[in-house]
Write a protein that binds this DNA or RNA. Structure first.
Lengths: 150, 150
DNA sequence: TGGCCAACGTTGGCCACACCAACAATAACG
DNA sequence: CGTTATTGTTGGTGTGGCCAACGTTGGCCA
């Protein structure tokens, strides 16, 4: 919290890309701070969540599903494996692959993170009504889907 | 454009903070790409725009208005001064300060960037109707104002 | 069967943005 | 006065998001 603040230029205030980025900054700060309480970072959460939802997967698949670069998956998986939240075992059927499996401790951690994140979302969206929130999410979804989905 | 794509986990898809970040990523990519055509970066645009709207200012003031850290302002001002888009002159009335002034070349560059950015905003918001866009901007504004304004 | 191309994990690097701490010079204020 | 605050600047830090290259291994098909 440094923000000594000062009025922003019109042009900047109303630039949608900049507004979006500003909101993302706020959201990320809140999220990072909450995750830090559990010693986690955003990548960690994304991987754990993906593993629980889709079951064991190779690192490349995790990368595809989360949008995290292959090389960054390596590091995050290292972190999580070190802390016992997942296991990395060679795939006997394809010796190029590792099979990543979430452990019970990992599920526990994921549950903790889920709680933390739920609270944070609420802080983040505090100024918006329930209807506003739905609209907001809808707009964001349409935007992101348009720009990647096709 | 690497995106080999893969379905995302429910939890991640509907997390507002993550959606916001995703949208910001898309917007920033578009913006950075456009600015790069003119050899500029986001900080540069913010400074030029602020200078034109508020007139000459000290670096500290620029930092306050744009939200850019003092130390990062130094670097960006260096870049812009090197290219002749602004001038840095010591303030005779306060020898701690530099007075930063936008030059005619700077205004020209700013106008160019404005054009580029306008196009980009349109790409970014392409999937949204005019009404949607207004709603979107409104929601974003309320969010960011709540979290900084008080 | 052999050869070629694709996919995988991994290493090592890059850049921009967002930050923080410290310093010397200078102003402002009590 | 002397103390506190502000300014420009240097020199970090970390993280997210990228890309290129590598050796290993599989899949494909000629």
């Amino acid at each position: 919290m440094n923000t000594p603040e000062g009025p922003q230029a019109e042009r900047l205030r109303r630039l949608p890309s900049r507004l979006t980025n500003g909101a993302a900054l706020i959201a990320n700060r809140l999220v990072d701070q909450a995750l830090a309480e559990a010693g986690a970072r955003r990548y960690h959460y994304a991987l754990l969540a993906t593993l629980e939802e889709f079951g064991p997967a190779s690192q490349a698949e995790l990368g595809r599903r989360t949008g995290i670069d292959r090389s960054d998956v390596v590091a995050a998986v290292n972190d999580l494996a070190e802390r016992g939240f997942l296991e990395r075992t060679p795939d006997p059927g394809d010796r190029r692959r590792n099979i990543i499996t979430i452990t019970p401790a990992g599920r526990k951690q994921l549950a903790d993170l889920d709680r933390l994140l739920a609270d944070v979302q609420d802080d983040y969206l505090a100024p918006l009504s329930a209807t506003d929130r739905r609209t907001f999410i809808d707009l964001l979804t349409r935007l992101t889907e348009h720009h990647s989905g096709r």
